[in-house]
Design a protein around this nucleic acid. Structure first.
Lengths: 195, 195
DNA sequence: CCTACCGATCGGTAGG
DNA sequence: CCTACCGATCGGTAGG
């Protein structure tokens, strides 16, 4: 007599996991409900019992991604070097989980279209990422740990862009790209102190 | 009695133009032959008279893109600052032609999948871009125009990645991103001489 | 959760 | 270049 609720919750998680993998491999538009359902072992109509529309499933995938990121990111990290190191650690994590990188890169590129269901998500995502890093660069600048002429706002914007661009190139030609080393190189270049 | 050949060639060019626009807006997989044909004012079967398969049309779009890039790029530019300035000029050109950026970003993200028909194209594209920039950074280093500790190979890789990442972010939140200014900022940071 | 179905759309072909 | 068509696939619904 195991609770039916628990079983349902597990099933939902399985569906979200399968959907995230499919979005990474095939893109959102390229991932049919039938394909995702097959990976879970149910019919596509059965999937729609858990998520009423294709977009609702996408929303659930993005929500879980945010929840995972928030978990890994302890909110206690103060602006400064620690935040930058945290991003390097995130890159190290990503190298061991290409599926996550796939998902993110594919969705980000699709979602440049204003009518894409994940567009607003990425607008917020970029703003939040930029603002967080900006704050850290500003703190470093105040302590004189940023090289002369380095504008915190531009440093933040280019840092986020670099991470994204590196990921796409890494996925395309994995052997040619050192994700973590490239990030370190970039950051060290802006700092007057060791990372 | 206008030559039928000329008319056919113009029609082919029109189809390629429409396809490139559609790929940018909707991605390759999201662009149906019927949609592209409608933009040209013919039936999708008519389109297949000019390009026998969907992939053949994609190949034609990529070929023309390369041809245009080669035209703009005079082959006489020697490795060094001039090449970097050329990339900044390319960014200025792109800001006025978002359709090209759309096409490139969408296809690059789709084509990380090894079985995507444009995958090999992007593998070659990344290699060529990196090698070209690498050569220029190496020349600058030899002349002492690169800051200490800047490795030409990493500088080249991150430069290409930065361009790509900036483009996606610029397409998503155009008002928040200064494409050209960000590139200048990045490059100036690596150099000991004014760009 | 299932089977069975809907209308719409896909790339490609036949035959002119 | 067209009309007409093919089999396959799509998201979603009906009714259990």
């Amino acid at each position: 007599m195991t609770g039916g609720y628990l079983k349902g919750r597990i099933r939902r998680e399985d569906i979200i996991t399968a959907a995230a993998a499919a979005y990474g491999e095939l893109g959102y538009h390229g991932s049919s409900l039938r394909e995702i359902a097959k990976r879970v072992g149910i019919s596509h109509a059965g999937l729609l019992y858990y998520f009423p529309t294709k977009e609702a499933l996408l929303a659930a995938v993005l929500e879980r991604r945010d929840a995972e990121d928030s978990e890994r990111e302890q909110l206690t990290v103060p602006p400064g070097l620690a935040v930058l190191r945290h991003f390097v650690a995130l890159a190290e994590h990503n190298v061991r989980h290409p599926g996550i990188v796939d998902l993110y890169s594919r969705l980000a590129a699709e979602a440049v279209a204003p009518d894409h269901p994940a567009h607003e998500y990425f607008v917020r995502h970029y703003r939040a990422a930029r603002d967080g890093v900006h704050e850290s660069f500003a703190a470093l600048a105040a302590r004189g740990e940023l090289r002369d002429g380095v504008e915190p706002a531009l440093a933040a914007l280019t840092f986020i862009a670099l991470m994204d661009g590196l990921q796409v190139q890494w996925l395309t030609v994995p052997g040619d790209v050192d994700l973590v080393g490239s990030l370190r190189f970039y950051l060290q270049n802006l700092l007057t102190v060791p990372l």
